[in-house]
Simulated scan of single mutants.
Amino acid sequence: MIENRPIFTAVTHIVLILGALMVAFPIWLAFVASTYPAEDLVSGVLPLWPGDRFLENYSSALTGGVEAAGSPPVLLMMVNSLVMAFAIALGKIAISIISAFAIVYFSFPFRTTAFWVIFMTLMLPVEVRILPTYEVVAQLGMLDSYAGLSVPLIASATATFLFRQFFLTIPDEMLEAARIDGAGPLRFFWDILLPLSRTNIAALFVILFIFGWNQYLWPLLVTTDESYYTIVMGIQRMVAVPDSEPLWHLIMATAILAMIPPVFVVVAMQRLFVKGLVETEK
Rank of each mutant, 00 (worst) to 15 (best):
L153H: 13
I98W: 06
M174A: 01
P132A: 00
P109S: 01
Y105C: 08
R129S: 14
F163C: 11
M120D: 00
E173N: 06
T112G: 10
V128R: 00
L124Q: 01
I118M: 03
A155W: 12
V137C: 14
Q165D: 14
G148L: 03
Y146W: 14
Y146H: 15
F163Q: 02
L143E: 11
P109I: 03
P125W: 05
F167Q: 13
A177H: 01
T160S: 09
G148K: 02
A157G: 03
V136K: 07
T113H: 01
A155N: 09
I97T: 12
T160D: 07
A178L: 07
L124A: 10
S107M: 07
D144N: 15
A102L: 04
R164I: 04
S150I: 10
P109H: 03
T158M: 08
V137G: 12
Y105F: 14
A100H: 01
A147M: 05
Q139D: 15
Y134L: 09
T158D: 03
G148I: 01
S99Y: 00
S150N: 07
M123C: 03
D144I: 03
A100E: 00
A177I: 02
V126H: 08
I170F: 10
L122F: 02
E176F: 03
I103H: 10
R129Y: 15
I118F: 07
Q139G: 12
T121C: 01
E127Q: 15
R111L: 01
V126D: 06
Q139I: 09
E127R: 03
L153P: 11
L168S: 06
A159Y: 09
A147Q: 08
E176Y: 09
P152Q: 06
L131P: 01
L131K: 06
E176A: 09
S145A: 10
A102C: 05
E135T: 09
R179N: 04
A138I: 07
L168T: 11
R129D: 05
V136I: 15
M123S: 14
T169V: 14
E127S: 14
I98Y: 02
L153F: 08
R111T: 01
A178Y: 02
A100F: 00
I98S: 06
P125C: 07
V126M: 15
A100G: 01
F101S: 06
L124Y: 08
S145Y: 14
S107D: 03
D172A: 13
L124C: 02
V104T: 12
I180H: 02
E135I: 06
